[in-house]
Design a binder for these strands. Structure first.
Length: 339
DNA sequence: AAATTCGACAACCGCATGGTA
DNA sequence: ATACCATGCGGTTGTCGAATT
């Protein structure tokens, strides 16, 4: 049996909203609220629209204090930082930008920010590949800084984006915050954790989370790095290259080689992320050299930075989507000094 | 001036999830 | 335990105006 349609498709209007429709919807909601039922709302006010459509129109356009366009540099930085950290969780990102909607941010990212960053980054890669030494974005406040080990001329993971407010990297405040965050996230660092946690009651679940923290903390899979009390999540079980990299024991080439040979969804996403950061050409080169050297150590890049930030973080937020409430998603993962 | 391309944004669609009967 | 329903989310498509040919 198929799913029942949310509305009578034949009798609903589609396409752009007219000013009259906007007025009807806005004035009704301002007076009566949504009544907790979007589906019934259009009928109540005589709109030939789907309830979903009304909800979207209200949330993205009509509700008070919505900002459109004109993203500031600060907002750019926040979006980039969060995108690097958690990926395309637009609703979570929007929760950090008052007046912005997830749709707006998504559009902005897809149409401008992504191109802007890719363009910048590709330029840097090009410059780097030509052997120009230290490569760094001109703007210290910018989100995607690259560090270069002068002796190795090899890439390291992009450093944690700096806060536009404090010029510091975002950090978890303390172990308790981390614990709370993890619990909010459902305890899933990755999809691999789900089977472990299934079937636990709340108390067992919390204990499990704490045990996992101890475990991964001691094994380097979730590390505090440097002086900034930054925390890195890293998958513990079947992605050994990940652990190696975080501990600085692996090599760029061998890690990529393992990702390619693993050839699962997770490694494919990692490779995509690497392509984003380092450019397709470089990653392709590395794949080629990995396959030809069969794991031979070519470069030790793990020591390149004491303050490195791995794009792996993003993929380790898998599973966040369903558990993270919009308003509190980043209360524990905020920038210092910023509420 | 007309046709085409491009970019920005609004809106839609399908799926996942949570609540409830 | 299950089916149904409403809601929320992210990906995708459609539309329209500006820029380019």
């Amino acid at each position: 049996m198929g799913r029942a349609p949310c509305c009578d498709k034949a009798n609903v209007k589609k396409g752009p909203w007219s000013p009259e429709e906007d007025t009807k919807l806005k004035s009704y909601i301002e007076q009566h609220g949504t009544g907790g039922n979007w589906i019934a709302l259009p009928q109540k006010i005589g709109l030939k629209r789907c309830g979903k459509s009304c909800r979207l129109r209200w949330l993205n356009y009509l509700r008070p204090n919505i900002k459109h366009g004109g993203f500031s540099e600060e907002e750019d930085n926040i979006i980039c930082s969060l995108y690097v950290s958690i990926g395309s969780r637009w609703s979570v990102i929007a929760a950090q930008l008052p007046g912005r909607t997830d749709n707006d941010i998504k559009n902005y990212w897809n149409t401008r920010l992504k191109k802007k960053l890719l363009g910048k980054h590709r330029k840097e890669i090009h410059a780097r590949n030509k052997g120009n030494g230290v490569v760094k974005q001109e703007n210290n406040n910018s989100s995607l800084l690259l560090q270069e080990n002068s002796s190795h001329q090899q890439p390291c993971w992009p450093v944690l984006p700096l806060s536009p407010y404090t010029n510091q990297a975002p950090s978890f405040n303390d172990q308790d915050s981390i614990r709370k965050l993890l619990i909010k996230l459902g305890g899933r660092f990755s999809s691999d954790y789900q089977p472990i946690l299934d079937g636990l009651n709340d108390l067992q679940f919390s204990q499990q989370i704490q045990e996992e923290q101890v475990h991964v903390g001691s094994s380097g899979c979730m590390n505090s790095i440097g002086d900034n009390n930054q925390v890195q999540f890293c998958q513990s079980n079947n992605n050994e290259y990940c652990a190696e990299l975080v501990q600085g024991q692996g090599t760029f080439t061998t890690a990529i080689g393992e990702m390619v040979s693993t050839n699962n969804d997770y490694s494919q996403r990692l490779l995509s992320g690497l392509e984003f950061f380092y450019g397709e050409e470089m990653i392709t080169d590395k794949i080629m050299s990995a396959s030809s050297s069969c794991g031979q150590i070519s470069t030790n890049w793990g020591e390149t930075s004491s303050l490195m930030y791995s794009p792996l973080i993003a993929s380790n937020y898998e599973g966040v989507r369903q558990e993270m409430p919009r308003e509190c998603a980043f209360q524990e993962l905020n920038y210092p000094g910023v509420q």
